[in-house]
Nucleic acid binder design. Structure first.
Length: 288
DNA sequence: CTAAGGATTTGCT
DNA sequence: GCAAATCCTTAGA
């Protein structure tokens, strides 16, 4: 008898629970629907020409980075920008005064338009990606896999940009090391065995370099690298030797199909240990 | 060394 | 509801 009553009570309880769940999930659905329509309205109003024009206004003289590369450096087709960025120095100035430097050693170009791997494929424009339509030299930072950031630099051409894939750290190793440790997984077994990262592992990937350089969507997206005091690109005056550039295919975009995944849109400096992924075949062909 | 699986949020179809 | 421009750890060769 008792158990019967108890089970009755439980089933009632479950029903209440369920109905609560149903109503709350309906509410959630409605809110989500509203958010989606709102977002779509915003996105529908976006226009490439307008975004470009309005992002060209408001230029000013930077206080920091007086040796920085200016507008004309960025205002070239994305394939050219991807190549000319190699060997240049990315400088980041954190608000507390910390300065980080790294030589660009690996890039990828995302021209937009026909390219299925580009977020701006087929002229798509949304609030989150509108930085790629902004003035050449604008930083486009987005969240990937729910937990990492990647940084692109807008180039000439609507929706075209260059992804920074790897840097060779030059200055600020300790800061980078700390930023990387923050994000590392903390299972107790691994934590005890944990070692300091090698310098060449600090920025050897698009999300790694964003962690090391403290680059996030909120801090860096839509910033103009030609004038912003937080980040810029400089010429590297220390090296006079010619750069050996290896051309390969882009990484992590297999799902778009072989035609676009195999395009020779990734460029890196031969023999640099900070490169995220080497292409042995292309390197061999390069030497011959 | 390579391979596999988990983490985890966002925005679109 | 699902895919995503990645990284980290663990397991096994």
């Amino acid at each position: 008898m008792i158990s019967c009553r108890r089970s009755e009570r439980n089933s009632v309880r479950n029903l209440v629970k369920m109905s609560r769940n149903v109503t709350s999930s309906n509410k959630e659905k409605q809110t989500r629907k509203k958010q989606v329509t709102k977002r779509m309205k915003l996105n529908n109003n976006l226009n490439a020409d307008h975004i470009l024009q309005s992002s060209c206004n408001g230029s000013r003289t930077p206080t920091y980075g007086l040796n920085r590369l200016n507008d004309s450096f960025f205002d070239v087709p994305c394939e050219d920008l991807a190549k000319r960025l190699l060997g240049k120095i990315l400088v980041r100035r954190i608000d507390d005064g910390t300065v980080l430097k790294g030589r660009v050693v690996e890039t990828e170009c995302y021209p937009g338009g026909e390219d299925k791997a580009s977020c701006s494929y087929n002229g798509r424009i949304t609030e989150t990606i509108k930085a790629v339509y902004m003035k050449p030299g604008t930083a486009f930072v987005y969240v990937t896999y729910g937990m990492y950031h990647c940084i692109n630099i807008s180039s000439q051409g609507a929706g075209a940009a260059v992804l920074l894939r790897a840097l060779e750290p030059l200055e600020g190793f300790e800061f980078m090391q700390l930023e990387r440790q923050k994000r590392r997984k903390t299972t107790s077994a691994a934590a005890t065995k944990r070692k300091e990262l090698q310098v060449h592992d600090l920025c050897s990937g698009p999300a790694k370099l964003c962690m090391s350089f403290s680059i996030t969507k909120s801090s860096c997206n839509e910033r103009d690298l030609a004038v912003w005091d937080g980040m810029w690109i400089e010429e590297d005056d220390s090296k006079e030797e010619a750069l050996h550039i290896v051309t390969s295919h882009r990484i992590g975009i297999d799902s778009v199909g072989t035609e676009w995944a195999l395009k020779p849109f990734r460029f890196y400096l031969l023999g640099n240990s900070s490169v995220s992924r080497r292409d042995e075949a292309r390197e061999k062909a390069f030497r011959e």
